[in-house]
Write a protein that binds this DNA or RNA. Structure first.
Length: 468
RNA sequence: GUCUCCAUCGUCCAGUGGUUAGGACACAGCUCUUUCAAGGCUGCGACACGGGUUCGACUCCCGUUGGAGACGCCA
């Protein structure tokens, strides 16, 4: 039997980091087993679903390079389809009409909770007589369909947790069809997963309680349920389920910060899973190779921004300059610099000069902005420290010598500085720091001699002369 | 509150009866260096607790405690 898995986000918000990781694990499992990865949009909540969000979800998946083999399918396209199954289920005697209004329910629920008891639907409509039902129907009273939960126990063997069991008395007679005839999540999921031949349901463990309900629907259909794997949740610093309130959770927000998709995927993969040998940097192919539920943790994991930063900087460092050039265009544009207006070779060198420092692509413009604009203000402390009379007098001499350099390469410039320092018995820092400050206005930055080469002779001399 | 899940360094993971309990991030120090980073080295730092089982428990069982999740005509 070929493996078929799905990711089933609801288009009521951006693609969440947690959903992204669920998608990743589904993807890894599918690829590992030569199976199919399906995208299904769970939009049965018409009120809260939107086309924009659907587009964002698709765009997010695309950015992550988690390509789906089938879909996207939309549950809203099958609305009538779900209801078609009701007569079949009714015949089993496993579902029943409930005419209780939300208001009535609310009232009864309140009373029960006041007595500090757990609320569960009280089955008021379970044993309505044929006549009563007819009467209600004739009066056009709205009703929902509920599943009757018999006595006993419900259990399943989770691929990650092992057997999970729950007494049926803990499961209420839940609703599968709303009074407006639309299916509720638990019902739509079962119908779809079955229709699509989903073999493994891999989802967050916040769905465990839904699984029990869904199992009862499978039972009524007389159909073998799929295998389940409930993933531990991704947590925030406070160890609560990661949510909008926890900070940035939208996948595209990470893209916009300049996180590389490969780094992001690598990072989220490692929350809740790791290869046996503790490797940290893994390509998607390696992950596919190594993925197994045996290595998936049961415990929820905190989303550690610091580690993401570290990993992203690793990926940036190893990305080649040409590729970075392409990726960086929008980030520079956003800060008002059109790098395509400059000589590409020069931009490539600029990128190279700071790529080991950047943690996010977004940092490049700031890290390199002095290459693109004249310096008007110099670091205050730096000025006090480095623009002293003695140091400036050295610079003055250096400027003259620099003028005579024919090939203005970092090697040649460096040699010139080294020779000068030795000849005059001073410290390299005494001329290097003032030079850096004059060129960039900063006390820190890329390798100085490389900077000089990038600026070229003319611009270097211009900037140096300006501070003398 | 009820039910379910979970429990190794601050954080993410290794560890599946006998280990000096390992790696990574973070943090601190040292080193390298023209600066900041990066790199290299070192350090700090954990088996929640209590009972069993066993010759022997971080590893198995049971409790306790703690944390999380679910308790919608949301998904």
């Amino acid at each position: 039997m070929t493996v078929r898995v799905r990711i089933a986000p609801s288009p009521t918000g951006y693609l969440h980091v947690g959903t992204a990781r669920t998608a990743l694990y589904n993807y890894l499992f599918a690829k590992k087993n030569n199976g199919k990865f399906i995208l299904r949009i769970e939009d049965t909540d018409v009120e809260r679903s939107s086309k924009e969000m659907t587009d964002i979800i698709i765009e997010s998946l695309k950015w992550l390079k988690l390509e789906y083999d089938e879909g996207p399918f939309f549950q809203s396209d099958y609305f009538s389809h779900y209801i078609d199954h009701i007569p079949q289920l009714e015949k089993t005697g496993g579902i029943y009409r409930c005419f209780c209004t939300p208001e009535e329910l609310e009232e009864r629920k309140k009373k029960v909770i006041e007595q500090k008891k757990a609320w569960k639907y009280d089955r008021k409509c379970l044993n309505l007589s044929k006549e009563e039902i007819e009467k209600n129907l004739n009066e056009k009273k709205p009703y929902v369909w509920r599943v009757f939960i018999p006595e006993g126990k419900t259990y399943f063997d989770d691929l990650i947790h092992g057997r999970i069991e729950r007494d049926n008395s803990e499961i209420e007679d839940f609703i599968i069809v709303r009074s407006d005839k639309t299916p509720v999540y638990n019902f739509a999921v079962v119908v779809d997963d079955y229709r699509m031949g989903v073999t493994h349901v891999i989802r967050g463990d916040d769905h465990i309680s839904n699984t029990f309900k869904q199992l009862h629907i499978y039972r009524l259909f007389g159909v073998e349920p799929p295998k389940f794997a409930h993933l531990p949740l991704i947590l925030d610093e406070k160890k609560a389920k990661l949510s909008k309130r926890s900070g940035t959770v939208s996948v595209l927000a990470f893209r916009d910060m300049g996180v590389l998709p490969e780094a992001f995927v690598n990072f989220i993969a490692l929350i809740g899973w790791s290869p046996k040998d503790n490797r940290e940097i893994l390509s998607i192919d390696e992950m596919i190779q190594l993925f197994s539920f045996e290595n998936v943790a049961k415990k929820g994991g905190v989303f550690d921004y610091k580690k993401l930063e570290w990993m992203n900087s690793k990926y940036i460092t190893k990305t080649d300059d040409e590729k970075l050039y392409e990726l960086l265009k929008p980030f520079y544009k956003e800060s008002g610099i059109d790098i395509e207006n400059f000589e590409k070779e020069k931009i490539l060198k600029i990128i190279f000069s700071v790529k080991e420092k950047a943690r996010y692509l977004k940092e490049f413009p700031y890290l390199t902005e002095f290459f693109f604009k004249e310096i008007s203000d110099y670091d205050k402390k730096g000025v006090e420290k480095f623009f002293t009379p003695d140091r400036l007098s050295h610079l003055k001499v250096l400027v003259k010598e620099l003028e005579n350099v024919e090939k203005f390469t970092s090697e040649n410039v460096e040699k010139l500085y080294k020779d000068y320092v030795e000849k005059n018995g001073i410290k390299g820092a005494d001329v290097i720091h003032p030079t850096r400050l004059a060129l960039s206005g900063r006390t820190e930055g890329p390798s100085l001699f490389l900077m000089m080469e990038i600026f070229g002779k003319e611009e270097t001399l211009k900037r140096l002369t300006k501070v003398l």
